[in-house]
Design a protein around this nucleic acid. Structure first.
Lengths: 164, 164
DNA sequence: TATTGTTATACTCTATAACTATA
DNA sequence: TATAGTTATAGAGTATAACAATA
């Protein structure tokens, strides 16, 4: 457990990340709000999943997830398939058009990062990525203490979705 | 300049920070939205300032800043004083009530971090704080390349380790 | 004419609650 | 009865544009 003053400073810097978030959100095209990006990114990375699983990954209420999902589904970027094992459930799957859109968005945001982080080394980027991953994991652990398996705090590799 | 794949993973983890942001926002009392917290934190940390300066620090449009400021001013947590040097401008200052409220909020969020980051060492926290500070600075530098003075990117003394 | 700040408008994000369909 | 998901409603964050007051 770290000292109070350290947490206070961390809080301040977490607020400052809002600056980064807003900057990256501003370069998104009008038809792709950030909620849609989150959905596409998670489906691409983790593969097909149900609404409830997506809501868990997004850490928002399922009603919010439903809205985001409807937006991307309306544009043909994902499909909502029937789940043969549970007729209440719907399996979400990225469509080819969705993958294409995601590639385009990914390029756009990557370009922005290249521009902004011009003086960062590979190791700098890796280190920050690793710590952010661990940060998120620490919050996940507290939120959902159910599956007690060993956690890999996914840094770079994690070969998830084979369909992309 | 780092590799594309590193930026892509960083992007994904930056999105994951949304989980943290939302978790911390949920513990705020109803009369204190996160925009208000940002205003109080910045005024407390940087001291009195004008609207335009605050908007710059928040990295949002001044119209947005105006709304946030009105909210906290309506509750007596800050004052909007006249600027003797420019009658268009208004100097923002934290009131004693504002400091008190900020202390209360700070305690609340710190408690949350203590809970969430129970297994983080002081150095872990310092390292993440330092990288976030540098991240924000990298975005600031690109956004406002005007004042070319030397930058202090963090309050916490660092164990000189930024391989850039 | 340019700058500082406010207000009106519109859109997104989010949570709660009520609802439908299925388990 | 409980769960998966949708929709209605309400409140907050944000940007653009129009505006007032001052420089």
């Amino acid at each position: 457990m770290a000292e109070q003053v350290l947490y206070k400073e961390l809080m301040r810097q977490l607020g400052a990340v809002g600056v980064v978030r807003r900057d990256l959100a501003r370069i998104l095209p009008p038809e792709v709000p950030s909620g849609s990006v989150d959905v596409l990114v998670l489906l691409s990375h983790h593969g097909d999943m149900r609404m409830s699983r997506l809501a868990e990954l997004l850490a928002v209420d399922m009603s919010v997830t439903s809205r985001h999902v409807s937006h991307v589904a309306d544009r043909g970027w994902i499909e909502r398939c029937a789940d043969p094992e549970d007729k209440r459930s719907r399996i979400l799957r990225l469509t080819p058009a969705g993958e294409e859109k995601l590639t385009e968005l990914s390029q756009r945001t990557t370009d922005r990062l290249v521009e902004r982080l011009a003086d960062w080394s590979d190791d700098d980027v890796r280190q920050l990525t690793r710590l952010l991953s661990r940060l998120r994991a620490s919050f996940d652990d507290c939120r959902a203490p159910k599956s007690a398996g060993p956690r890999t705090h996914s840094v770079i590799p994690e070969p998830a979705n084979t369909t992309s």
